[in-house]
Design a protein around this nucleic acid. Structure first.
Lengths: 226, 226
DNA sequence: GCAAATATAATAGTATTACTATCATAAATG
DNA sequence: CATTTATGATAGTAATACTATTATATTTGC
């Protein structure tokens, strides 16, 4: 799987950037170090000026890649969801049993990212932390409908749809497959967040994980009366 | 219930504000109109200067009530959760059957706020919209652990705990009561958000509500095998 | 190998933000 | 009616989130 990723390229909607950061050394340094810097100081305090200083480049050069830090966050989010979708597809592809397939899917989308692939300039462990802490800010804005029309959330939506299809395959008469899929994805990020900052609000600690929680929740729900 | 609310006062942690906005006319206008303005332009674009203009007062006067707009958001969030907790307690108090009690609790915390009480300067319908669209920003910050230590999320945590207790009363051996409680509360906000901005990611539309979804999810989960 | 195109860097400038500080005035209270 | 307290007006600051312009490298196409 990892080998495959080093050959394939994660693709994000190209309207998100002005110039594709994958096409240059500076672009890659922008992505690599923005992930590090956002983790360090948080998205609110993050600026292109600070990033420029960190990578020994100029603010104005970064603006040639992304028109705003919001677009950069959209880029990072899309990249993460594309990376996750890739894993979902590869790891569930050959599973024919629908229950087993969904079980695996839940484990993929709810697991903590703890290993950096080292095949690219992107540190997935740090990126995952940004997704947990900051990704809601990519859509909780007044411009969300405009951004959505521009297609900036396509990959995320496709991921949710894939999970919904797997849910419906297990129980075609379950009438909340989409809501359940979106709850698994956002809910697991939230449980990871709670584990870190509000441990009194989650059972996902001491060996219990969001994966256990959502697998139990989903299968009890789908294999039950109504 | 409404009558009771007009006598009781919703209390938020007093370290959130510099001066209690409930104690003056200006304070009430700050709260009333901040809710309106944040809805209009979003929390990112909202400033004390704009609010001052709107209420015919001065930026510097508003700073005498709240040290930052973040504190104001914490105030509004706490107020909402206190208001919701109040309803939860009142409306479930006299229900002795644990299943019925939990069922009612879920319906209270997941329902859309559609009616303004008109008993105060706070428009609950608009405030609810802020909670759906902006409340995550009250904790998704680098200062969350500090804010948490200061007690700014006490009411929210108490609400989750109350729901957790009701879940455990239905099924004491269920090992994810806290995670389920936090998933119901945040998850229902998210489903309301999706309904408005990403209808392709939720089944909560055309008569189906987050209430139906979570009631089904919870009871299937609690009345099942494991 | 050189001209032209392209990418990056440097600098400056702007309106706005998120405040703090100071002083003046109005309203409430004892 | 004197004094405290609340509010308003004005000014100032460092930083933000950009845009614009010009200069200098670097790459590429012929």
């Amino acid at each position: 799987m990892k080998d495959l990723l080093s050959v394939l390229k994660i693709t994000v909607p190209d309207k998100i950037y002005i110039k594709d950061p994958e096409t240059s050394d500076l672009g890659k340094r922008i992505i690599e170090n923005s992930i590090i810097l956002i983790n360090e100081i948080g998205f609110e305090s993050f600026t292109f000026k600070k990033l420029g200083t960190k990578i020994g480049s100029n603010e104005s050069s970064i603006y040639r890649y992304f028109e705003s830090k919001h677009k950069l966050l959209l880029y990072l989010s899309s990249w993460y969801w594309a990376w996750l979708e890739y894993q979902l597809v590869i790891e569930t592809f050959s599973i024919s049993d629908v229950n087993e397939k969904l079980d695996k899917a839940i484990s993929i989308v709810t697991r903590t990212v703890e290993e950096d692939s080292t095949y690219s300039h992107i540190n997935e462990v740090l990126l995952y932390k940004i997704i947990v802490n900051e990704s809601s800010k990519s859509f909780l804005t007044k411009e969300v409908d405009k951004d959505n029309k521009e297609g900036y959330f396509e990959i995320y939506k496709r991921l949710i749809t894939r999970i919904q299809e797997m849910i419906s395959a297990v129980n075609p008469s379950f009438n909340f497959a989409l809501s359940l899929a979106s709850t698994i994805v956002e809910g697991s990020l939230h449980q990871h967040y709670l584990n870190e900052h509000f441990p009194s609000l989650t059972n996902c600690k001491n060996g219990e994980t969001p994966t256990n929680f959502f697998q139990q929740l989903v299968f009890n729900s789908l294999h039950n009366g109504k």
